[in-house]
């Protein structure tokens, strides 16, 4: 299987590379439209500021390229946020696959610290990405901005308020959390993305 990781100067993507290698996959890091279109799976990671990362994407016209991909795509963290319509972080228009806007967490109590950093559980999981999930499971999050629950939500988490821990539309999947840092649960999600036949069908 050929897996391509979108390489656009947006933070540490090596943890994703290592996670795939542990699953026996040697991914290609690329910003070339041709390489991306040839891959069986595309992973779109991201760390950092939405406006800065969006600018890097646009420099290589990767926003258009990603929007046009037909194979299964998995956005992670800021990758997920950039797949939405707009982000409050730097007030920037994003790729627009998911018709929803990214908001900043507004703490209401002292204990609600931002960034939200650590292990939280996800529930109400849907689609083949979470195949085999029967109860809430803990995954690892690091973020200050979130996607509200919406029609594309396929997993929910709760921090300050209930929000989307993962999204899905057609061939596009995305997680706010880091499956590559989420222990054995994260590994199951990555394996589902790579190997589950229903992912090919966008289910």
């Amino acid at each position: 299987m050929k897996v391509a990781i979108v390489d656009y100067n947006a933070g540490n993507i090596y943890s994703v590379v290592h996670a795939l290698k542990r699953l026996g996959i040697d991914p290609v890091l690329t910003n070339s439209a041709e390489e991306l279109s040839k891959a069986d799976r595309v992973i779109f990671p991201g760390q950092g500021h939405a406006r800065t990362t969006m600018t890097s994407l646009k420099e290589h016209r990767l926003d258009e390229i990603i929007r046009g991909l037909k194979q299964p795509v998995l956005g992670i963290c800021v990758g997920q946020q950039l797949m939405c319509r707009h982000s409050e972080e730097g007030d920037v228009d994003c790729v627009g696959i998911f018709d929803v806007d990214v908001k900043r967490f507004c703490p209401t109590r002292h204990e609600e610290k931002v960034p939200c950093m650590g292990w939280n559980d996800i529930k109400n999981t849907k689609t083949a990405l979470f195949s085999g999930f029967e109860k809430p499971e803990f995954v690892y999050f690091v973020h200050s901005y979130y996607v509200p629950t919406c029609q594309w939500t396929i997993a929910e988490s709760d921090y300050i308020l209930p929000y989307s821990a993962a999204l899905h539309k057609d061939n596009f999947y995305a997680t706010q959390f880091h499956p590559e840092k989420s222990g054995s649960v994260g590994e199951r999600i990555l394996k589902n993305f790579l190997n589950n036949n229903d992912i090919e069908k966008g289910l």
Partner: peptide, 8 residues
Amino acid sequence: VAANINIP
């Protein structure tokens, strides 16, 4: 460590 461990 980074290559072998899947938690932060």
